[in-house]
């Protein structure tokens, strides 16, 4: 049995600063949740990237099928009215 089959895969999410959301930053192998958390700390926060880490078993993520991409996402392409780009923003407002 290969190592990959024996040791589960985990997805790692890191929150870089207070007020920001956790962002996916990669994956790793670990035997259980505690070891996954430590490995995430060791692999992904070596340069002060994080204040908080989440790990989630990759098997628990439900993903869309790449073959469904057209039927899921193409219908949004021609609905430009959903983008709020028709409003004139006064200069004083600056970046919204």
């Amino acid at each position: 049995m290969s190592e990959a089959e024996e040791i589960p895969l985990w997805e790692v999410f890191i929150r870089p600063r207070n007020g920001l959301a956790h962002r996916h930053c990669g994956s790793l192998h670990a035997a259980d949740a505690e070891m996954a958390l430590q490995a995430a700390r060791d692999v992904y926060t070596r340069r002060g990237e994080g204040l908080s880490v989440w790990v989630i078993p990759s098997a628990q993520i439900v993903a869309s099928d790449p073959q469904d991409r057209d039927l899921l996402f193409d219908p949004a392409d021609d609905k430009i009215y959903r983008h709020p780009s028709f409003y004139n923003i006064p200069d004083d407002v600056g970046h919204m």
Partner: peptide, 11 residues
């Protein structure tokens, strides 16, 4: 023995 420890031990 695994990549994760290859970073943890030098850390």
């Amino acid at each position: 023995p695994m990549l994760e420890e290859d970073l943890a031990m030098p850390n």
